[in-house]
Every structure is written in C-alpha cells, then in structure tokens.
Design a protein around this nucleic acid. Structure first.
Ligand SMILES: Nc1ccn([C@H]2C[C@H](O)[C@@H](COP(=O)(O)OP(=O)(O)OP(=O)(O)O)O2)c(=O)n1
Ligand SMILES: [Mg+2]
Ligand SMILES: [Mg+2]
Length: 1052
DNA sequence: ATCCTCCCCTAC
DNA sequence: TAAGGTAGGGGAGGAT
C-alpha cells in the first residue's frame, strides 16, 4: 500500500483488510503484495508497480460495504494497465500470505505488462526473442580481411511465414509473403543480475544522509535504481524491440512506406529517362543490409526541449555539472578511475592502426591497452594536481554527448569529471527516458512501414535487410536511406544516420563513417579499399558481457544485510521469470568482492570499485521460479564463498536453463533471428526416435494459445541445429510444441497445483508409450513419484505417505506404475539418475577417505545454517575438534541427464548433491604486498581461504553420520517417549540437510532412526517418526518434485 | 568429441 | 553523490 493512500487512512484500510481476510504490507514486496492501494502514485512508482494491480482505496471500502469482493477493475488507478487481470475469487487472496510457493501460484495472475510506462500499451510485446545478429560476424580482426568481403555475417535467413493473422494488434493486414528471421539457437537464457556495492561502515561519515534512498536495505532500492539506470533501460528496450519486431513479423503486415518509395523511384526514373537498369538490378543476388542509428540519441531527444542548446557541447548525465563529488576518505579515485578506463574506455587512443596490418600485430593488443591506460592516468594526474582546487570530478557517466562535445574528446560513457576537464563549457541535460522511448517507437514504426526484415539492435539503432524491399520497389539503397532518414527526422526532430553494405559488419562500419547525420552506401567494389582504411577501432569487436550495478552505503557489514539483499534480488528474478512464464534449473550467484589491493572505499558513489568476481552455480533438480528457493540457494552459495561482508561489492543472480512453466504457458519463446551462418553443429543424437514428432513439427500453432489460454501447449526449444542444406534459410522456428495430452488438461484445469515437481511435470508432458522393466531393487534412497495420490494442496503428504508406506510392494508397484506413466525417455532419465545417485553414494564413501575436515560446532545450534559470520572467531575453530565428514566433499557430483536434446524439455534431474561447501573465494593476496596495480590478471596471487570452514548442517553439533547416529542412539535410549522439542530439532536438522542437497544423509538418518525404533521397540516414537518424515517429505517434494522413497516397512 | 561451468568481453 | 545492466559469443579447463 502506498503511503499516499489517504482517504480512508491507511490504518483504517489496514484494519479493514485484516478484518476481511486480507493482509497489509507496509513495504512493497512483489511476492506478497497482490494489490497496490493508493490514490495517486508518482510516476516512478507507477513504473515500479507496473506489474501490480494499482487500485484506489474505495475498492476496499466499497467491497466491505457491499459485503462482497467487488471487481477491482472499476477502481484501477490507471487503466493503462494492460492485460486481463482476472478477478479474485475470494477476498482472502487479496494478499498472498507468505506460504509455500505452491500456494503462490494460484494467484498473481497479473498480466505480463512488459514495458510501457504510462499507458503505452502497444508495447505489450510477446516473448519471442530475436537473436543477436552479430553472432559470428564479429570475426576477429585477423579473419576480417577475408571474411568481411563475403557476406558471411549476414544471412538474414528467412523462412516463409505462414501467416498467423490472428493476433491482430494493429490495423495492418497480413502479407504472407514476408519472412521471419529466426534463429536456430536454443539458448534462451533469461538472466538477471544485479550487483551491489558497499562501502565500509567506517565510512559512516559518508553516509550521514540516513534518509538517502540508496540503501540496499531499502525495499525501494532496486526499483529506484533501475528506474534511473540508463543501461537497464537500454537493455530492457532492446529486448522489447526485439520482441516487437518479432511480433510484427509473425503478424504480417502491409507496408505503406513502400508505395512512397516506389513513387519516388518512378519519378526519378522518368527524369533520367528510364534507365533500364533497375529492372535488372532485381537480379542482383547481393544482399543489402542497412544499419540505422540515431545521432547522439539521448542528446538529440533531450535537445528537443532545449533547442537553444543546439550547437553547444551537450551531454546527458545524472550529474548536474556543478558541485564536486565528495572525496571519500578511504577511496582512491585515481586508482579506480584508472582501472575503469582500462576496462571501459580503451577507445580513441590506439589510433591509427589499419586493418591491413592487423593480422601480424594482433598480439600487441594488450600492450596497446596499457599504453592508453597510461595516457588516461596522465590526465587524471594532471587533474589531481590542478591548481585552484577546483577539481570537479564527478564520476557520473555520460550517456550521450553531442558532436560538438565530441570534438573536445568527450565520449559516451565517459565520466563527467573527465569530460568537464576536456571541455569546460559542457552543458548537461537530464535524462528523459520516456522521450527516448517515444522517439524509439517512431523510429521502429517508421522503418516497419517499409519492411519487417528488421533486427533490433538498440533503442536507437537497428539493422534492416533491404534486399527484398529494394527489389520490390526497384529502388536503390541510397534512395531508401534518404527517404527513411527524412521521414525519421520529420517525425521525431532527431537525425539518424545510415550505413549500407552487404553484411552487417560493413553496414555498421558504413554508419560510423556516415555518422553525423549522413548516410553511406558501401558498394561491393569499394569494400576492400574501405576496409583497408578503417582504423581497427571502427570494427565492432567481439562481444560482450557486462557489468553491474550497485549500491553503496555502509549498511551492512553484516551478513544479514547481504542476505536480505539477496532475498530482494531473488524476488526480482522471480518476477522476471514469472512474467515470462518460465522456470529455471540453474541458479548462478555472481559475487563481486573488493580486490585486495583496492581501497576499502569505492571511489565512485554507489560504485563497486575494483573487484574480483566469482560466480558459482547450482543445478536444481527441478526448474523453479520460486524466490524462496532461489534466495536460499544463493544464500547458501554466498555463505560458502565466505566473502567478507565488508568486501562484498556486488551480487548478481542468474537463473538459467529455462523451461516453460507448465502451468498456463502460452508463450512463444526463443526465436532469435539469425542473420548469419546457421552453422549446424550437426551432432545430434537424433531426438529420441520415440518423440520425433517434435523434431518435425516446427509448427506455429502455439500462437493459437494466444487466444485460448486454456491450452497448455508447451513450447520446447529445439536444441539441434538447422540442417545446413540451404544456407539461406533457417529451417525453423526453433520453437516447438508438444501436444498437450489429455491428462494435461485435467491437470491444468483441475487441481494442477497439487501436482508439483518432477514427476508431475513429466507426466504432463506426454503420456507413456511404453512400459519399462521394473526398477532395480532400490532399498536405499530412491525417489518416488508422488503423482497419483493426491496431496492436500497444502502440500502435506501425510496421509498419502502412509498409503505409500503401507503398500507392501510400495516400491516395485506404485512407483513403478507412476514411472510407467512417464514417457520412456524420461523413465530412462529417472533410472539413470537413480543409478548415478547410487554411484555417487559409492563415491562419497570413497572420498570419505580423502578426509574432508569440518569444524565441529559444539553448540547445539538450533540453526544449523549459521550465518557465515564467524569471520574471525571462526578462525579459532580451526583448532577445535573436527569431524570427518563421511559424505566427503568432492562428491557433489551432479547428474547430467541426456544433454542436449532434452535441454528444454522437462528433465528430471535428481541430483543428490552432497553438501557442497568448500569453495573459496579467490582473493588477491594482500599480505604485505604493496602490490602495485601492476598485477596481470593471471598473475595475481590467489589465496584460497581454505580455512575457516563453514558451519555445516548438524544435529546438536553432530555432523558426521557416525556422530549423528550416536546422538540418536542416546536419544532413543533416554526415554520411551520423545520430546516435542526433539522432534522439532530433528525436523530442522533433516530439513537443513535437504536444503543442503544431502539427501543421502537424510536417508541414512531416517533409516537409522527407523531401524532403532523397531529394534528398541519404541512404539511411542513412531508417530514422531512419521511426523518427521512427513515434514521432510514436504521439503523434498518442494525441492525435487518428488519424495524420498523409503523402505516399505518404515515405521513398523 | 562434446558437454558444462566459470569466466571475460563488448555493444548498446 | 549516482543509479556500473544485460545478452550472447567465445575461451579455458574440467568431466565424461
Ligand atoms: N556507454 C553508453 C553508450 C550509449 N548509451 C546510450 C546513450 C546513447 O544516446 C544511446 C545510443 O548509443 P549510441 O552508441 O548510438 O550513441 P549515440 O546515439 O549517443 O551517438 P552516435 O551518434 O555515435 O550514435 O545509448 C549509454 O547510455 N551509455
Ligand atoms: Mg546512436
Ligand atoms: Mg546506437
């Protein structure tokens, strides 16, 4: 609820809500909050809450008055909210109360309002992605000479579009003759990463502004950050435009622009008295790619409001250009800036090297970099020393600078301080993200009125395959470019430049040459010469990665801080996943930690300073989008990494290996366009023959789902590559559809949320076609599908579990039949997983000998998962008694089931990973090293912090199975009836083991318990045991999608 | 040979 | 103050 909610006071509303089954969250939490109640919201909030239902308070009061839950629709704050938000069936769901994930799914139907800030509804784009064009084109410089010439890079592959006219969004008509560039790649990794940087507490000084919104702890931090982040906007827009273009392509359309172009050409021809050439030109097989890019985009949009600044050196930046950045005590601006420059800006200085000489000079690249760095430092030094003390060095980055500013050497991405240095007259103007988006929209729509063979590159930039366009209109590239640029200018008031060539790379280079408000057509004949003259800097290099974001503030030197932040990030990730109906199996945590030679304080406010990066990933047995699971995994990793809290500068979470979340999924995914070689990786384990139907159907039918949400077509990315047969055509969509099976429907329509997890998911995919031979006897750990017998939706399997247990042949029979219900290949997977599991077990024992030492925690530790704390104190532990951990470290094996082909299909991964702690953060060895900055990356001494091991999951201090057994034995002997407390401790212990992926130990412990209860005839303990088992199964279920299989005689 | 993970890189 | 995000190619090195 927004604090602005006056009307009824927020307290009153809160009371009403509580009274009627809702709940009230004081702070925004995307997972808990279902409706935002407010009378008005700042636009930044609107943006922030755009996925939410924003509703006026009268909704609540009126509902209460009328005694039932009224539709919130008439009460929406902004009708611009796209999508169909379905009403809630009960007031109770007003707010999701933090229960288990499973419950969450039920609500949150919030539509996928993608971008569109204030009411820009058309931006609702579908999810399909176009791939990056640059794929291979970015051939390293050496090959450039050769490769450039052919149009290797740019095969705007196309396939005939089957017109799916149904998604009519615009008034355009279908033109089935158009093509859709598509990508053969299956990679669809939605990733999310955010970093965090902090400054030390010592610098409490720097943060007296306690009201500063920039705190990691602040619930608004993330959204606040994003809404001001130009790079975030750029990224977001890019993917939106890709999706938009993709949608256009699927839609088909008419191209009003072509007529104009055609007319102009006609006219021209008349004048020139019919050159017979143009008809002939049509024969040219030559592909023509045009690259269009707005000139100093942010600036020129900004100047529309400040026309008087035209002609002046203008920059867009957050910095207001006055005042001085505070010189943070512990920081080393010079040092950091130098590092920054080394990293980012290697532009400009390496000057004149020509392509032609590149091949032999290639290796000197590094040196060059360093040289340029030195120059940078030099400047900095001067600046530092500059007399008069008027050193303005803001570290705000310049997003875009006008060409006047460029004359002084100012560049995009440069720090404001340095730019000011280079050009004292610099004028700054603020960001106007909405303005950029508006212009961007016009740009795209303008081009789209000519063709849909577009590849979005950025919000101010795109690639256009003009081949078809030019052919059909009989025009030449120059004519088209002129017309297009004129039109863009007329409509937006901003200028664009265009470059054309036979491939993407050439087109881009041509643009660069054309740049300030010009165009350049690079004909085939000039290519060699052109290239020869190009400075190497003008060649777009290989690609990219990224960096980060951050937050500063002394807030947490304590680990809780970071973990809390992680939780928030997890929610962010969850939302992103949720919005695209995907779940992922792989979670990666990326950590940036202060490099040992870096100062304690970051030079740049909210910067991350100079860091070491570490990343670690875990594979989940089943895909998830649950923020709690994500955060739990991340926290575990973080703890294991043992980064000093004060050195933690950035945190990023990525979720990969996405697959459609089966429940309601009508989205189309993937579909990246490929404008270049679709190099088939051949290889191929033909998709298991049984399910060939996949292979063959590159159908588009799923689109139907756009209108019939009930269906559950599951999009599956096709991993294998295009048969290379026809290089000009990408053979498919790379998105495939598996027919939903009957049970599908019932599951979806009915009690879907009940069936969760691997088996359930699998079953949903396909019906079994074959029955497999019985499983090997698994008296040990085994996983049992829990599909058939329903659970209560609360997820409590209690009842059912008993059934399972009771059935004599529990394992052979029921589970077998469940298994049998699965597709053959999946059965196999399960089997394999099982096999590996046991093998792993073997390994484990083996590695046991390798002796992994862990500290014994002597404290009874209620919470085995201790905050990694223990920093220095932990060190002493080193001397404390240690236990050998039976399940030794190295094991932590992971099963990989059939690799590629199934990649995006449901894949049971029963990964019993042994508690994998260990792992040390590579740290730069600071020890008495005044270590100059010299460090060559590879050289830096990494000291592994092998010491101060992590407190491991333990039962009252017992870690090893032997100790636990001893403890349990004592426990059993101590009395005939268990204490409630004991029960809870056991549950906690076992649960933590599960979280730790140490199912093996869980199994051992349970069996041990069972055995001894029987042996000692402790009848009274049985209910406790059941209870414990139930509790554990719930957790296992939620994490693995199935339950532990336990011997049939359990508990008897 | 082929994967996967962890990294780096760079265009916007 | 500043808002250093992000997709995706590619390489090294380990596991299989
Ligand atoms: N380091 C960078 C580079 C770019 N941008 C933003 C601002 C730019 O206006 C926009 C487009 O980037 P371009 O590379 O196209 O640069 P400009 O459009 O500003 O200038 P040019 O005329 O060279 O295209 O992206 C940014 O925020 N930070
Ligand atoms: Mg531009
Ligand atoms: Mg651009």
């Amino acid at each position: 609820m927004s604090s602005n909610s006056r009307e009824p006071s927020s307290d009153e509303l809160k009371r009403l809500m509580m009274l009627h089954g809702g709940s009230y969250e004081h702070y925004m939490s995307k997972t808990r909050v279902t409706h935002v109640i407010a009378t008005s919201l700042a636009s930044s909030k609107v943006n922030e809450f755009k996925h939410m239902k924003m509703i006026r308070p009268e909704w609540i009061t009126d509902s209460v008055k009328s005694g039932r839950l009224l539709s919130y629709v008439p009460y929406q704050l902004y009708t611009a909210q796209t999508g169909i938000q379905q009403g809630l069936s009960s007031f109770t769901s007003l707010t999701v109360t933090q229960r288990s994930t499973i419950t969450n799914n039920t609500q949150q139907q919030s539509s996928n309002t993608t971008a569109s800030f204030n009411g820009r509804t058309e931006n609702q784009m579908d999810r399909s992605y176009c791939g990056s064009i640059k794929g291979n084109l970015a051939a390293k410089s050496q090959e450039l000479g050769e490769n450039l010439i052919e149009n290797t890079a740019s095969k705007v592959t196309q396939i005939d579009k089957r017109n799916n006219s149904h998604i009519t969004v615009n008034d355009k008509t279908v033109d089935s003759s158009f093509k859709v560039p598509n990508d053969g790649e299956y990679t669809l990794q939605e990733t999310e990463k955010v970093k965090l940087a902090k400054t030390t507490a010592t610098a409490a000084t720097s943060c007296q502004s306690s009201h500063s919104p920039a705190k990691a702890g602040d619930p608004d931090f993330l959204s606040e950050f994003y809404s001001n982040s130009r790079l975030h906007h750029l990224s977001t827009w890019k993917s939106e435009w890709r999706a938009y273009v993709n949608k256009l392509q699927k839609q088909g359309s008419s191209f009003p622009g072509r007529q104009k172009l055609y007319d102009v050409v006609k006219e021209k021809e008349m004048e020139v008295c019919q050159r017979v050439i143009s008809p002939l030109q049509k024969a040219k097989p030559q592909r023509i790619i045009m690259h269009i890019d707005m000139d100093c985009f942010f600036v020129s949009v900004g100047l529309k409001r400040r026309p008087e600044l035209k002609g002046k050196p203008v920059v867009v930046t957050h910095s207001r250009g006055k005042g001085m950045a505070k010189d943070t005590p512990g920081s080393d601006v010079q040092f950091e800036r130098r590092q920054w420059e080394l990293r980012r800006q290697q532009g400009g200085k390496k000057g004149k090297r020509k392509l032609s000489s590149v091949s032999d000079q290639q290796p000197s690249e590094d040196i060059d970099d360093r040289e340029s760095d030195d120059i940078g430092v030099d400047i900095v030094a001067r600046q530092q020393t500059s007399p008069g003390g008027s050193t303005f060095h803001s570290m705000a980055e310049i997003a875009s600078c006008s060409y006047e500013a460029r004359k002084c050497g100012v560049r995009n991405g440069m720090f404001m301080g340095k730019a000011k240095q280079l050009c004292p007259d610099l004028v700054t103007i603020p960001y106007d993200f909405e303005g950029y988006q508006d212009v961007s929209k016009i740009l795209y729509d303008t081009v789209a009125s000519y063709t849909h063979d577009i590849e979005a590159v950025s919000c101010d930039e795109m690639l256009v395959d003009c081949t078809d366009l030019l052919t059909t209109t009989g025009s030449n590239p120059v004519q088209f470019a002129s017309m297009l640029r004129d039109e863009i200018y007329n409509k937006t008031g901003c200028t664009a430049s265009a470059g054309m060539g036979s491939n993407i790379l050439l087109a881009k280079m041509a643009t660069k040459k054309a740049k300030p408000n010009g165009q350049y057509y690079l004909g085939a004949d000039e290519v060699l010469e052109f290239i020869h003259d190009q400075s190497i800097d003008n060649i777009p290099g290989k690609n990219y990665t990224v960096y980060n974001l951050c937050l500063a503030q002394p807030l947490g030197q304590d680990d809780m801080e970071a973990e809390h932040f992680l939780t928030e990030l997890s929610e962010e990730v969850h939302n992103r996943l949720f919005n695209i109906d995907m779940k992922g199996k792989s979670i990666t945590l990326k950590i940036m930690s202060r490099r040992a030679d870096a100062p304690q304080e970051t030079a740049k406010f909210m910067g991350h300073g100079i860091c070491n990066n570490t990343s670690k990933s875990v594979m989940l047995p089943i895909a998830t989008d649950d923020s709690k699971i994500i955060s739990r995994e991340c926290i575990t990793i973080l703890r294991n990494l043992k980064v000093k809290a004060t050195d933690l500068r950035g945190i990023g979470i990525q979720v990969q290996k996405l697959e459609p979340s089966t429940v309601k999924n009508n989205n189309v995914k993937g579909a990246q366009s490929i404008l270049n070689f679709a190099v088939p990786k051949s290889k191929e384990k033909v998709v298991s023959p049984q399910e060939n139907n996949n292979t063959s159907s590159y159908s588009d039918k799923r689109i139907i789902n756009g209108t019939s949400p009930v269906h559950d077509y599951t999009a599956v990315l096709q991993p294998y590559d295009t048969p290379q047969s026809d290089e000009n055509y990408i053979s498919h969509d790379n998105v495939d559809v598996i027919e939903s099976s009957q049970d599908d429907h019932q599951e979806i329509n009915g009690n879907s949320e009940v069936f969760h997890g691997i088996v359930g998911e699998l079953a949903r995919r396909k019906t079994a076609k074959k029955i497999l031979p019985p499983l090997p006897s698994m008296d040990d750990l085994s996983l049992t599908p829990e599909g058939a017998d329903t659970l209560t939706s609360s997820g409590r399997p209690r009842r059912k579990r008993h059934q399972v247990i009771e059935s004599e042949d529990y394992f052979p029979s029921p589970s077998q039949s469940c298994l049998n219900a699965l597709p053959v290949d999946l059965q196999k997977e399960l089997r394999e997983a099982y096999a590996q599991q046991t093998e792993q077990e073997r390994n484990k024992t083996a590695s046991n000998a390798a002796s992994m030492w862990l500290p014994q925690s002597n404290s009874p530790s209620k919470k085995p998962s201790s905050p990694l704390k223990a920093k220095s104190p932990g060190k002493t532990k080193k001397n404390s008694p240690v236990f050998k951990v039976p399940q030794g470290r190295p094991v932590r094996g992971r099963k990989k089931l059939s690799p590629k082909k199934l990649k995006f299909q449901k894949q049971p991964k029963i990964d019993i990973t042994v508690s994998g702690r260990k792992e040390s953060v590579p740290m730069f060895d600071n020890k008495e090293t005044t270590l100059t900055i010299k460090e060559i990356p590879g050289t830096s001494v990494m000291t592994s912090h092998v010491d101060q091991p992590q407190k491991s999951v333990n039962l009252c201090g017992a870690v090893s199975i032997a100790d636990v057994k001893t403890l349990l034995r004592e426990w059993l002997q101590s009395s005939t009836t268990p204490e409630k407390d004991d029960e809870e401790i056991m549950i906690e212990y076992l649960t933590d083991l599960v979280f730790d992926h140490n199912l093996e130990q869980v199994d051992l412990v349970l069996k041990f318990l069972n055995r001894n209860i029987c042996k000692m005839n402790r009848v009274n303990w049985r209910p406790s045991l059941w209870k414990i088992i139930d509790a554990v199964q719930v957790v296992v279920q939620s994490m693995y999608g199935c339950q532990l299989g336990l011997p049939t005689d359990f508990g008897f």
